[in-house]
Design a protein around this nucleic acid. Sequence first.
DNA 1: GTCTATATCCAGATAGAC
DNA 2: GTCTATCTGGATATAGAC
Lengths: 203, 203
Amino acid sequence: MLEAAPTRDRRAERREAVIAEILEAAWAIARAEGLAGLSLRDVAARIGMRPPSLYWYFDSKRAIYDAMFVQGNQQLLARLTEQQWPDDPRSILRLIARVFVEFSVEDIQRYQLLFQRTIPNFEPSAEAFAVAMEVYEQMRVRCAAAGFGGHAAFDIWTALVSGLSAQQTANDPTGDRWLRLIDEVVDMYVDHVTPTRQRRKGS
Amino acid sequence: MLEAAPTRDRRAERREAVIAEILEAAWAIARAEGLAGLSLRDVAARIGMRPPSLYWYFDSKRAIYDAMFVQGNQQLLARLTEQQWPDDPRSILRLIARVFVEFSVEDIQRYQLLFQRTIPNFEPSAEAFAVAMEVYEQMRVRCAAAGFGGHAAFDIWTALVSGLSAQQTANDPTGDRWLRLIDEVVDMYVDHVTPTRQRRKGS
DNA sequence: GTCTATATCCAGATAGAC
DNA sequence: GTCTATCTGGATATAGAC
């Protein structure tokens, strides 16, 4: 007679744990050697495995990049949803910008993987790209909630945030030279897209 | 008795020509395979040489990246100086932004080499970096001439231009989705840094 | 699941002939 | 100046034992 199936699949749990371990190692190496410097050899060594064993968990190196891409986007998504969102439109935008720029500066390799096409021949899979679209949508929805939903206006908004991130990560990765301009840039943007009549400065 | 020295050093000229050929090949391969995908083997093959021969002209692969870095910056510098600069401040800024963003989109690998830290372990040499500073100074001087010389204001300006470039290259490399926002962004910036009293819209 | 062994290929760089 | 030959090491990936 068959045993009742256990409610937890310990094998699957173990597998997930190892996958998490692999990705954690991959991130650490990417941070140290650069994204393009990532090698399966180093990943395996870091977790006490031999390189071929990784293929039990990932089909290829690209698959690892892909999983990292998903993970990074999920982290940003979590960062966005865990915020205490204020009501004031200007404060909402400031918070979005701050979350995004800080997230970028926090881990430059992650920033490059998510937002720059830096690895030769790597394009995220369709499923991975879907997660990136979720992030984009989250950001768009938040902006719309703040009253800034227009298409051209949103493209300008993404350019502003991406420009602050790009300058901060590339030219002052350990400082705050562009981080501290966030509020001013948000004000500039709000003033620009708000009809003159309604304008009022935030605190 | 010694001959009179010829006024042209044909040997040096030939050498310069070969160096130019090598760099041209390197750019072509970078465009096709990505910056990190550049290999001396491919460079040599493309110009009908064997890989070791490249070492007659460059000490290392890094030296090639370095020369590319210089060349790219010189191209941008030339682009800036060859412009017919208008008098109107707003027009000056529009032109700067357009030159910069178009230059970026034109060759994304060049953009990555010049403005993003994308190759593991590559940092431009001091001499190469000096050329990059020239570009930065050119841009700063042009902005100052337009009446926008303040420090924080200029950091905002570089963030704007870099953001438009980043979004255009990463998300619409063959289109003009952010290119066509340049004038609006410049207006936004000018309105922001201009005391309200003096403000007037450009054509 | 993890291993050893290996295939296959590529990389940057150097020695030394010509 | 350019070559051949070679060094040394690294890469991803697969086959198959255990």
